[in-house]
Amino acid sequence: MGCLDKLPYEVILRNSSFSECRDYLKKNFSEIYTVSPGYKIFDVHIIGVPPVTIALDGNMVIFPFTKPCHGTFLVKVESKEEAFRLRKTSK
């Protein structure tokens, strides 16, 4: 796992609600996984309303990242290791 801030990431949605991010993932990606709140990805624990949705697109990991003052961001980060771990451990 690496530090999210040090990895190149793309922001897909910003200042959104958690449910908007979940709806976007379900509408735009076909490989969807659900995890529990607190699931650690890179160096962050995912904050959210269960079920928390994460999408994979090849080695791209697309997940919600919540900041207390700014709402939820949907971010896309390339990580072969995290994609493998998610496919192996989640459904």
Binding site: P37, H45, I47, C69
Partner: peptide
């Protein structure tokens, strides 16, 4: 007081 707070509450309840 915002949507992020709802996410934090659900998370604390879950973990």
């Amino acid at each position: 007081h915002n949507d992020a707070g709802i996410s934090y509450a659900a998370t604390m309840n879950s973990i």
